[in-house]
């Protein structure tokens, strides 16, 4: 069965930005997702901060999560500097979560 982009997004439901405690999808950090017929998957992550100290950790977590998808073969997760992150990309759920620990966004 072919892997869908939504499968990739869903796989990262529990991958969190550790400074916000919000998952990558709600953070609006999932950029381009490319899947080929062989099950090779490439994910671009859009980082809010150019010097994110958690960058390696987030990429590693994301890669582990995507690898769990049935049929996934080679998985590459990299920073996608071609897209710009801004706060309008945060979901309402992320805003509510952030508000509960002191951020008003």
């Amino acid at each position: 069965m072919a892997i869908l982009k939504q499968d990739v997004i869903d796989s990262m439901r529990d991958v969190m930005d550790p400074h916000m405690n919000v998952n990558l999808n709600d953070m609006g950090m999932i950029g381009g997702v490319t899947i080929n017929a062989d099950g090779d998957i490439e994910v671009g992550l859009v980082f809010p901060c150019i010097g994110c100290p958690a960058m390696d950790l987030i990429k590693d977590d994301a890669e582990k999560a995507v690898r769990k998808i049935a049929g996934a073969r080679n998985v590459t997760v990299k920073a996608d500097w071609g897209k710009k992150w801004d706060r309008t990309m945060l979901s309402q759920e992320a805003r509510d979560n952030a508000k509960s620990h002191g951020y008003i966004i």
């Binding site: 550790p18 400074h19 405690n21 950790l57 620990h101 002191g102």
Partner: peptide, 14 residues
């Protein structure tokens, strides 16, 4: 301590 704690979790996971 809410935000403090998930950042501490980040440090030990790092």
């Amino acid at each position: 301590l809410r935000k403090v704690n998930f950042e501490e979790a980040f440090h030990f996971r790092h």
